[in-house]
């Protein structure tokens, strides 16, 4: 490996290890799942998000995971209740007093 390539590698590594927005990659990775799931409190969400959205090392993984989850939602979230089932449920409820006031 020539020295220019080695220097480029070292610079890249040093840049990655600098905390972005006061959060290190290590800390952000620890909380990335809860951040994606919307489970952090507002302050923590802002702090971790401000790192994940700009960090060259973390952001690709976030984008990758979002694409994966979007595919799950798209595939499993499209079924709607058939009209026949809806009518059957409402009819059965009415027989038990639903909608009678």
């Amino acid at each position: 490996m020539n020295w220019i390539e080695e220097l480029r590698r070292r610079l890249l590594r040093a840049r990655r290890e600098q905390p972005a927005h006061g959060v290190t990659c290590h800390e952000a990775v620890e909380k990335v799942v809860e951040w994606l799931d919307g489970e952090l409190d507002a302050e923590e969400e802002r702090r971790i998000g401000s790192h994940l959205e700009v960090c060259a090392r973390c952001y690709p993984a976030v984008r990758f995971e979002r694409a994966f989850r979007k595919a799950l939602e798209r595939s499993a979230g499209v079924d709607s209740c058939p009209e026949s089932v809806r009518e059957r449920v409402v009819q059965a409820l009415k027989e038990r007093g639903f909608g009678s006031g």
Binding site: P60, F64, A67, K70, A71, L72, R74, S75, A76
Partner: peptide, 27 residues
């Protein structure tokens, strides 16, 4: 999976090209 795919599809666009039926089958 991310590391394995990162060199060919770092944005994970391939997830969107997997048919719904296969995803449902795996779920």
């Amino acid at each position: 999976v991310f590391m394995a795919a990162a060199d060919r599809d770092p944005e994970g666009t391939f997830w969107a090209r997997i048919v719904d039926e296969k995803i449902l089958q795996e779920i």
